[in-house]
Amino acid sequence: MLAVWIIIGIVVILAIVFVSTYNGLVGKRNQVKNAWSQIDVQLKRRHDLIPNLVETAKGYMHHERETLEAVTKARNIAQAASSGGVGARAQAESELTSALSRLLVVVERYPDLKANQNFLSLQEELTATENRISFSRQFYNDSVLHYNNKIQMFPSNVVANMTGFKTSEFFEVTAPAEREAPKVSFQ
């Protein structure tokens, strides 16, 4: 009789551990999703800002068609990649970041453009967005790290394998030169 009770007790404890681990995993997965949507919001914001920025810059920068076109192209590629996976998207976005930073370096040669109020406010907005992108990426990667650790570490990995949790991909900037947001200066 006693043995039956002990077995029942063990089963109950295991069930409780299982359920709470499962719920913990779900919570972590939701956090990753939530963090991803944060990045998404900021990246979309950047996509929306760029056409205006390019349009304003065009009027002043007659000799920089290539740079401007590269930004527009990178932006369109990045926007097309929006529906893709994390890795493809990170790749496209980091190319956009480097195209933008090239543009903002060139801008320094055009004092008239830098005096344009509209351009200045767009540039400021862009810098703020770049910062927000990098912090939302940081939070996303932190969340993914915790989630993946949970999935791979004992004992939660047992539950994760049984219930089909999959590790998430980091949002990584590939080239080391592109780790930094474009250098923009307020004047």
């Binding site: 939530n34 963090a35 900021q42 400021e124 912090f135 940081q138 939070f139």
Partner: peptide
Amino acid sequence: HPRLYNVVEEMKIASG
């Protein structure tokens, strides 16, 4: 105070 506001917003995002 845009600078302060932006910094708070960044940290809000970083902390989730």
